[in-house]
Design a protein around this nucleic acid. Sequence first.
DNA 1: TATGGAGGTAAGGATCCACC
DNA 2: GGTGGATCCTTACCTCCATA
Length: 372
Amino acid sequence: MAGKIALKQLTRSDLTFFQHQHEVLQAGHQKSINLNQDVFVGALFPALPDTPEGRSGYLGMDLVLLGPGIHTALRLQRKIVKRSTYKNWRLNGELVPKAAAGARFDPLQPGDFVVFDFSGNVFPTAARLLFVAAAVPEDATLHGILAERLGSRKMIPLDSSELGSLIDAAALPDSHPALEFTLGEAIEDAALGGVAGVERLFRRRSGTTMDQEALQRARLRAEAVGREGEALIDGWLALQARQGVIRSHRWVSDLNAVAPYDFSVEDAAGNTIRLDVKSTAGPFERTLHISMAELQEMADAGRRYDLYRVYALEAGTARLRIAEDMAGFADSLLHTFSELPEGVTPDGVSISPAVLLFGPEIEIRLPEDEED
DNA sequence: TATGGAGGTAAGGATCCACC
DNA sequence: GGTGGATCCTTACCTCCATA
């Protein structure tokens, strides 16, 4: 996940977000977690006040709650609101009921931590929340490290690499949900069949039931991202056709899921180009995977085959870089594979985008009527 | 040191819903 | 329909801190 990350120390009133603490702490009627202005808007979403969503003061939100300690993810729908009279945005809506959460959040006390990982570039559309409680033995080391990092401040932004370093330093047990933050890229890679991701997970994790759940979530997410990326390119190509940049296009994989390419495009000169879309919500550099069938199709010298790298993908927006005419590259790989012993055939390859010749970045932002 | 902005807390009003 | 409790939302006020 290419998230915007923040670390916050929980106050008494923040903990009223949970039914148990709301009853026990008697910390007022507020049922929300305060999102400090300087971090939530200033550091993470500076353009938010200028968006219709920001002006509406209402952001619907899918939440995945992780921790404290070792628990499976709890999914909820809540909202982040800011009325005109509010000073801060607040994660609000409804407290987390005991019926849904059991006793897992009961150990949380004022002074404990929550790590927010928001999805969304301009405004948040979803978030993962990792709760870290001093009273939970599995969290104790990480709690100390986060306390030292936060110092006297109440809420700070973090980048993913720094969060990864903090979590690594805590030497958490293999099944701790915080590892989803450091191993998210590896999980996505493994879900797509990447060898590097599998190796990294194998080194760090021990195949618990939580791993299966995380992997399944990553697989479903990767599929959804792939589909969303193709839909976005479909809309973008339609726009290109209307502007006369291309004559027409056809979304082939929408009709035939096993097709070795995603789109067939007729350019302005009437040439047919096949193209495959590789999408990620993460950064451009994330490893991409090409199947053997796609490689063979690429190597067909009679027709141009382009690779579309869609990244930083989120609702209706993404960035795109295009590697044109992959035939030579695919041909060289297939030549290498021909040296393998008879009866041995690779299923596909994992490729760092750095080894391909990509064109400049194109920002894709479709008008609302182009989405879907 | 004064001031203003932001964070945290708590009081009270509005609304919903179960029960009679 | 009336009543009362639970829940949710709004707002006021206190405290802290950065800045001039």
